[in-house]
Nucleic acid binder design. Sequence first.
DNA 1: TTTCTAATTGAAAATGATTTTCATTTGCAA
DNA 2: TTGCAAATGAAAATCATTTTCAATTAGAAA
Lengths: 153, 153
Amino acid sequence: MPEFEFLNYLKTLGLKITNQRKIIIEVLLKNHGRHLSLEQILSEAKKNNPKISLATVFRNINFLEKENLLTKMKLDDNKSYYELCLDFKGSKHTSTHHDHLICESCGIIIEFYNDEIEKLQKKIALDFNFKISRHKMELYGICGNCIKNGELK
Amino acid sequence: MPEFEFLNYLKTLGLKITNQRKIIIEVLLKNHGRHLSLEQILSEAKKNNPKISLATVFRNINFLEKENLLTKMKLDDNKSYYELCLDFKGSKHTSTHHDHLICESCGIIIEFYNDEIEKLQKKIALDFNFKISRHKMELYGICGNCIKNGELK
DNA sequence: TTTCTAATTGAAAATGATTTTCATTTGCAA
DNA sequence: TTGCAAATGAAAATCATTTTCAATTAGAAA
């Protein structure tokens, strides 16, 4: 969770701690819980260092994803969104799966996990003699806030 | 279901029945139940008319989708797949929602519908005060056939 | 501290799946 | 037949990545 711990962890993976890398990690930690696109991460990062390029953000995000420190989700808007999936316990981290509610008005992405649904998925897989490796469930609609504010588009 | 009925229906929508259009419809009907990408539809169509262009396939598919005669699904491979969703009853058609099992070995897309899951989704939406307009559920893994054939990659 | 070198970066080009443009062709109503 | 809006093919444009390549830099070694 704290930045130095995160950076230390990256060091153990053989990475150099560059200014750009630090800024990107900062952005991710500051927005923990939110789902950001590459462009959003870039524009946040640019507030600290206007020279950071999209390619650098891409490469860093990509690396974190490979290390399972980030999850990527592709939404129907054709973009990918990234979310830190860390619970640092010493130098360990765990990632947890969740599904998503996606507001088509304000764009907020709400996570949830429902054990009954997971069980039903397993049952369905069994029925079809199918071995599931991962799944995706996205509920698109309008969030409570937008309903309240009359954003019914 | 029969092609002339389909084409007639398109006529009532103000479309001209071109050779290309006929071929594309043929391909879709012949592959009813399967999910095809634009490229797949194009390559099938080219067997009848090698001059058909991707743009034409795109525009026709796009139109059918707008008319709710086709459903489009974007998979994690970054491509869109299209499926006829018709049950012609006279000049009417109905579309039905389903979720998908996607084999990461052979690419087959198996449809299913589970009422319990749909109910749970509604319950979750309620919990979050969220108004769902549509949803997507995709279970990725290996299908029974590929397991049998040892495609465990 | 300075040197050295592999890792990292920025800019720009490449990719890949669509999507649009535009000049030409064609279905079909009159 | 003719006329013309609809449809088409080829090529260019988009858009979100992803890669290339030459220049820069972190940080280990001297």
